[in-house]
Nucleic acid binder design. Structure first.
Length: 769
DNA sequence: CTAGGGTTAG
C-alpha cells in the first residue's frame, strides 16, 4: 500500500477502519515510509486510534515521542489516551503538561478538563493549579473536578461543587450518583436518582453497579431489568456484578440471555466471561468458550487475553499462559506482566518470575507486591525483605501500599526479625498506610513469631473487627509458647463473637493442647470437630503420643475413616521416639518410608529410637538404607538479628566474617562442657555431615554457631534470640542448656515448631526431658 | 463495564 497519492480524507477513513493493533502498526509504518509522521494531524489521528484500540502505553508514548514538533491536538489526543486508560499515569501526564508549557503553544481552557481527567486519582493535584490560574469557575473545568472528587473522594467536595453549579449536565448528575455509590452512600445516590430531571442508560447502569458494589444483587437485577434501553455496558455491568460476587453460574446464565438479545458482546464482555469461568473452576466450560471464540474468529482484546492468561495460570497450564503472554507481544501492559509474574510465583518458579520482573518496562505497586509476596510465600523471606528495601530506595518506583506491608511484615515474622519488623512498622506509620484486618493479622503474626506475646495480644485487642485468621494467628502464637489455656480460652471467645472456627483453628488449638500436655481439653476439642481431616488426626495422635498413650493412638489410626497421611504416622513415630516404643516406631517408620522415601527426618527418628535402646546394628542398617535410597540429613539455617541485619549460619559454612572467632569460642565452650562432665550422648547419631567438625563439641549445629556469634557481639545483659528453620534436635537442645548455664545468659531459640527459653541450664519447653 | 498483588496451621 502506498499512501503517497491518497488524499487526507481518504487516509482518515482508512485509519478509522483499523480494527486491531497489527493493522495499526502497519498503518504507522506506512506513515513513516511516506514521511507523514512529522505532521501533527496524522500523529493525532494515530493516537486517537491507539485510544480506540486501547494500545499499550509504551507503544503510544513512542508514537508521541517520535513527533518532532507536536501541536496542541497531539497533546490533547495523548492526554485523552491516558484518561481512557482508567488507571493513573500521573507522572506521564505531568511530564506531558510540562512539555506542553515549554512548547510555547497557546493553551486554551479546554485543555484543563482533559488534563484533570487524564491524571486519574492524582488529577485532584491539578485543582490547586487551576485555582491559581483563576480558571476554577470555568464550567467544563468544574465538571471535571466534580467528577474527580466523586470518583476519588472526598465525596463531600464533589457534593459542594455539584451544589454550586449553575448548569448541570446529565453527566454531572450521573457522576454524582456514581460518586455516592463509590463512597457507600446508597441513600443519597437513590435520592438523586429519584429527583433528577432526566435519566439515560448510564444513570440506570450506575444504579446497577452501585447495588452490585453493596453486594445487593437483587436490587441490582431489579434496576437492570427496568432499564428501558439496555446497551452492552449495562449487560456487562450486570455480568460483572454476578462474577465479582462469586455467582459465576448466574453470570454465565445471563450471558446466554445476552446472546439472545439484540446486544452483542464486546471485548469487555469476553473479559468478564473468561474470568467468570476461571473463578468457576470449570476448565471445560472455559475451554469450550475459547474454542467457540476461535471458531468465530472473534478478536480478543488484550484485556480479555490477560484474563485468559490468568485463567490458564490459575488452572496450572503454565505453558498455555506463557503462550498468551508471548502472543500479546507489544500489546502487553503492566497487568499482563504482573499476571505472568504471579503465574510463575504461584508454582514456585521464582527465577522465571524475577527474570520478567527485571525485564519489565514499567513496574507498578502490584508488580512489586507480586514479586515480594512471591518470595515470601516460597520461603524466601530474606529476599522478600531485600526486594522491599529496593522498592523504597528506588526513586521512580511506586510507594508501598498495605498489600506490600502485609507481605513484608509476615516475612519479618517468619524470620523472627523484630528489629527489621519495627523498622517496617515505622514505614507504615510514616506513609500513613491504613491497615485492614489482614494488616493487623500480619502484625499479630510478627509479634507472636518474635516472642512478644504481649504486643501480639495488644494488637489483637486493638482490632475493632477480627476474622478467623486473627484468632488462628494468635492461637498459633500461644501454641508455640506452650500457653495451652489461653489458646482454649480464645476458642470459646471466638465462638462468643460469632467467628466460625475453621480447620486451621482446630489444628492450632490441638497443637497448643499438645504442647501444653492438655490431653483432656485437647480430646474434647477433637471430639467437637464436625468433619476432622487427616491433619486433625495427626494433631490428636501427637497429643496422645506425647503423654504416652501410644496404643490408644495406634488404635485411632487403625479406625480412621479417612486414609491416614504421612503427618499421622509422623506423629506416631515421634511419640515412639519420646517413649522409646521400638515396635510402634518400626511400624510408623516402615509406612513412612513408603509414603515419603526422601524425607530424611523419618530415618533419623528411627535410628535414634534404635540408638536409645543400644541396638547399634539397627542404627547402622538405617544409615545404610539412607545411603541406598540416596537421602541426606537435612541441614538447617540459624540466624540472629544484629544491628538491623540477619547473620545466617549453617553447618560447615565459614563464610561469615566473624567465623574464625565463632569457631574459637565454640572450641572453648566445648572444652568447658567436657570439663564440667558433659558427654556427647550416643542417641544423636548420623552426624556424617558434621564430620569435618569432629574436633569441636558435639557436632557444630547452626544454632550453636549463631549463639556463639551473639555471645561475641552482644553485651552480657542482652537476651540472645536465635531462629532456626528446622526443628532443634535433642543434643543441641542439651548444648543450649549448658551454654546458658556456663555463660549465664538467657537464650531464646525459636525453631520451626516452638519457642525454647533457656536460662540457668533449664528450658521452658516440656519437649525434651 | 473489564485483567494483575496480601495474613494463619503441621
Amino acid at each position: 500500500m502506498n499512501f503517497g497519492h491518497l488524499s487526507m480524507s481518504q487516509l482518515d477513513s482508512l485509519a478509522c477502519k483499523i480494527s486491531n493493533l497489527s493493522q495499526l502498526r502497519q498503518f504507522h509504518a506506512q506513515l513513516i515510509q511516506n514521511s507523514l509522521h512529522h505532521h501533527s494531524q496524522w500523529v493525532s489521528l494515530l493516537i486517537s486510534q491507539c485510544t480506540r484500540l486501547r494500545a499499550p502505553p509504551p507503544y503510544t508514548r513512542l508514537i508521541f515521542d517520535s513527533t518532532p514538533r507536536p501541536d496542541i491536538h497531539v497533546f490533547i489526543s495523548m492526554l485523552k489516551y491516558y484518561s481512557n486508560l482508567g488507571s493513573a499515569h500521573f507522572n506521564q501526564v505531568v511530564s506531558l503538561y510540562q512539555k506542553l508549557q515549554c512548547c510555547d503553544l497557546r493553551i486554551g481552557t479546554f485543555v484543563y478538563p482533559v488534563l484533570i481527567k487524564s491524571a486519574g486519582s492524582k488529577g485532584i493535584e491539578f485543582h490547586a493549579h487551576v485555582l491559581k490560574l483563576g480558571l476554577a469557575s470555568d464550567p467544563y473545568i468544574r465538571n471535571a473536578i466534580m467528577g474527580l472528587y466523586a470518583k476519588y473522594g472526598p465525596v463531600e467536595n464533589a457534593r459542594d461543587v455539584f451544589a454550586e453549579m449553575h448548569e448541570r449536565t446529565l453527566a454531572d448528575w450521573n457522576n454524582m450518583i456514581f460518586g455516592y455509590w463509590i463512597w457507600g452512600n446508597k441513600a443519597e445516590a437513590c435520592r438523586l436518582f429519584d429527583i433528577m430531571p432526566e435519566r439515560n442508560v448510564v444513570t440506570w447502569t450506575a444504579m446497577v453497579t452501585g447495588y452490585a458494589r453493596m453486594k445487593d444483587l437483587e436490587n441490582a437485577r431489579r434496576y437492570f431489568d427496568e432499564i428501558p434501553e439496555k446497551n452492552v455496558v449495562s449487560w456487562n455491568a450486570m455480568l460483572s456484578a454476578y462474577a465479582q460476587n462469586r455467582f459465576p453460574e448466574e453470570a454465565l446464565k445471563l450471558f446466554d440471555d445476552m446472546m439472545n438479545s439484540r446486544d452483542q458482546p464486546n471485548e469487555t464482555t469476553w473479559a468478564i466471561v473468561i474470568s467468570a469461568c476461571s473463578s468457576c473452576g470449570d476448565c471445560s466450560l472455559a475451554d469450550s468458550f475459547v474454542q467457540k471464540l476461535n471458531q468465530k474468529r472473534i478478536h480478543l482484546s488484550y484485556f480479555a487475553k490477560t484474563a485468559l492468561l490468568d485463567m490458564y495460570a490459575k488452572r496450572g497450564s503454565l505453558q498455555a499462559a506463557r503462550q498468551v503472554f508471548d502472543e500479546l507481544g507489544v500489546s502487553r501492559n503492566t497487568v499482563t506482566w504482573n499476571a505472568m509474574i504471579s503465574a510463575y510465583t504461584r508454582v514456585g518458579d521464582l527465577a522465571s518470575a524475577r527474570e520478567l520482573f527485571d525485564k519489565m518496562p514499567e513496574r507498578d505497586v502490584v508488580t512489586w507486591n507480586s514479586m515480594i509476596s512471591g518470595y515470601a510465600q516460597n520461603g524466601q523471606s530474606a529476599l522478600a525483605i531485600d526486594l522491599f528495601k529496593d522498592m523504597i530506595t528506588a526513586a521512580d518506583d511506586p510507594k508501598p501500599d498495605e498489600v506490600t506491608m502485609v507481605s513484608v511484615i509476615s516475612a519479618c515474622g517468619h524470620l523472627g526479625a523484630l528489629d527489621i519488623g519495627n523498622w517496617v512498622i515505622g514505614i507504615v506509620r510514616k506513609n500513613h498506610i491504613k491497615l485492614s484486618i489482614s494488616g493487623y493479622n500480619s502484625l499479630i503474626f510478627l509479634y507472636s513469631k518474635c516472642g512478644s506475646m504481649d504486643d501480639a495480644k495488644r494488637t489483637f485487642q486493638e482490632m475493632t473487627t477480627r476474622d478467623v485468621v486473627s484468632y488462628n494467628t494468635l492461637i498459633a502464637g500461644f501454641a508455640a509458647h506452650g500457653h495451652g489455656m489461653e489458646a482454649v480460652k480464645l476458642l470459646s471467645k471466638m465462638k462468643g463473637e460469632f467467628v466460625e472456627p475453621d480447620r486451621v483453628t482446630y489444628i492450632v488449638i490441638l497443637t497448643a493442647c499438645s504442647h501444653a500436655g492438655m490431653l483432656e481439653e485437647g480430646w474434647k476439642v477433637f471430639e467437637s470437630i464436625k468433619a476432622p481431616d487427616a491433619d486433625h488426626y495427626a494433631c490428636v495422635i501427637d497429643l496422645l503420643g506425647r503423654v504416652g498413650k501410644l496404643d490408644e493412638a495406634k488404635k485411632i489410626i487403625d479406625d480412621m475413616p479417612k486414609e491416614p497421611h504421612a503427618g499421622v504416622y509422623g506423629s506416631l513415630l515421634n511419640a515412639s521416639r519420646i517413649h522409646k516404643r521400638i515396635d510402634l516406631g518400626e511400624f510408623a517408620a516402615s509406612t513412612l518410608f513408603e509414603l515419603e522415601p526422601h524425607n530424611s527426618g523419618n530415618y533419623i527418628l528411627l535410628s535414634n529410637i534404635y540408638a536409645s535402646a543400644g541396638r547399634w546394628d539397627d542404627v547402622v542398617r538405617v544409615r545404610e538404607l539412607m545411603r541406598k535410597v540416596g537421602v541426606k540429613k537435612a541441614t538447617g539455617w540459624s540466624w540472629v538479628e544484629y544491628k538491623g541485619k540477619l547473620h545466617k549460619f549453617i553447618v560447615g559454612d565459614r563464610s561469615h566474617e566473624r567465623s574464625d572467632d565463632v569457631y574459637r569460642l565454640l572450641a572453648e565452650l566445648g572444652r568447658k562442657m567436657r570439663n564440667s562432665g558433659y558427654m556427647a550422648d550416643k542417641t544423636c547419631v548420623l552426624r556424617d555431615v558434621e564430620e569435618e567438625e569432629k574436633e569441636e563439641m558435639v557436632g557444630t549445629h547452626s544454632e550453636k554457631l549463631a549463639v556463639c556469634f551473639a555471645l561475641l557481639v552482644t553485651d552480657a545483659e542482652a537476651v540472645i534470640r536465635v531462629v532456626k528453620n528446622l526443628r532443634v534436635c535433642w543434643d543441641c537442645h542439651t548444648a543450649m542448656k549448658m551454654i546458658s548455664n556456663l555463660e549465664g545468659r538467657k537464650i531464646i531459640l525459636r525453631d520451626n515448631n516452638r519457642f525454647h527459653c533457656f536460662s540457668d541450664g533449664i528450658c521452658s519447653c516440656g519437649d525434651y526431658w
